[in-house]
Simulated assay, not measured.
Amino acid sequence: MRRRLLPVLVLAASALVLTACTTPSGVPSSAPSSAPSSTPSAEPEVDPQLVVTLDGLTFTDETGTTEATFDDSDALLALLETATGDLPAPEAVEDMPGYEFKLETYTWDGLRVTADSTGENPSWITVTGAEVDGVPIATEEGLTVGSTRADLLAADAWALVDSEDSATAAYLGLGGREVPDTQSLTHPGSVGIIFLLFSLDGDEVTQIMSPSNDFSDI
């Protein structure tokens, strides 16, 4: 029965072709409409952002992403100058009795860099605001000055010494990484670590320091 349908379909198709060929004059035939031209989509805007890690800073804006490590103070300062449009004048740090470090600080609104003026030792930063000269700054976990203790604990932050309770301690650490050839002062017999250090006033973060460690004696 299905094979008998084929001639009928062929005849019907032929009739449609003949009808199309004999369209009366004066009746406009339909022409395919032109496809609408595509308009290039605008590039999404990228808000400037600074990110703190154990190794340094990352700055992202519409031009891309730049990274600088604490081991390269010049690159770190150049990154911050690019991000903020400003490079503050350095201020010498008074040495502690018995030490001679030749440290200097560069202070922005919301951040302070402490660097070795000789370039021989790594620098470190202290974040004191949620923005650095208007540029938002946070950790990789999204933690900022103003975050809560609950935010830190949710990210697995811990009290610096075992005798303290992370629910009440004034300082919490996050993201520990072992440093070979060092000895922890808080956990004797263990390898020392570097970590992000959070200072809290009550249950609110007031400062973030990177990197901090548990093997330096000052």
Rank of each mutant, 00 (worst) to 15 (best):
T66L: 11
L197K: 13
F70V: 07
T53A: 09
R112K: 13
G26L: 13
L80Y: 08
L11D: 00
L143I: 15
I218L: 14
S41M: 07
Y106A: 00
I208T: 10
Q49F: 11
E104P: 01
P97G: 12
D74E: 09
A12V: 03
E104I: 02
T63P: 04
D72W: 07
S216F: 05
S37F: 09
V127L: 00
P40H: 03
S190R: 12
P122W: 03
D201W: 01
S123G: 06
D214N: 14
E100R: 14
A157I: 11
A92W: 00
D47R: 15
Y99K: 13
G119W: 08
L77F: 06
D116C: 09
T139D: 08
G64L: 09
A15W: 11
A89G: 09
R2H: 13
E43N: 09
V161M: 08
V205P: 02
R177G: 10
N121E: 10
E131P: 13
E204V: 15
D109Y: 05
F198W: 04
E43G: 05
V10L: 06
V161P: 01
A42Q: 13
D116M: 05
S166E: 14
R4Y: 11
Q49L: 14
N121G: 02
S190G: 00
Q207H: 12
L143A: 08
E94Y: 01
E164M: 09
S216D: 12
L153G: 04
E43R: 14
I208S: 07
E91G: 00
A130N: 04
L143M: 10
F101R: 13
A42M: 05
R112V: 12
V205F: 02
G129N: 02
T148G: 04
P28E: 00
P32L: 11
S184D: 08
D133E: 15
A150L: 00
L76Y: 01
Q183F: 03
A42D: 04
D162N: 09
N121H: 09
L50R: 13
S212N: 15
L57F: 13
G146Q: 04
S123T: 06
D133Y: 08
G98Y: 12
Y171C: 10
T53S: 15
E67W: 12
A154L: 08
T22F: 12
L143K: 12
T19L: 10
P136N: 04
T84M: 11
E164H: 06
G129R: 08
T39D: 00
L153P: 04
F215E: 05
S29L: 03
S199N: 07
V51C: 03
L79E: 10
Q49Y: 03
E131S: 15
D217M: 13
S30R: 12
L76N: 08
L197V: 10
L87Y: 05
C21T: 10
L87H: 04
E104C: 02
G202S: 06
A154G: 11
D72S: 10
S184G: 10
S117Y: 02
A150K: 02
A157W: 09
A169L: 01
L103Y: 04
L200V: 10
E164C: 03
S14N: 00
A167G: 08
W108R: 06
R149K: 02
E91Y: 00
L185Y: 11
A138H: 06
P36M: 01
P188H: 01
P48R: 02
Y106T: 01
T19S: 03
V132K: 06
T63D: 05
G142S: 09
S34D: 05
R4C: 02
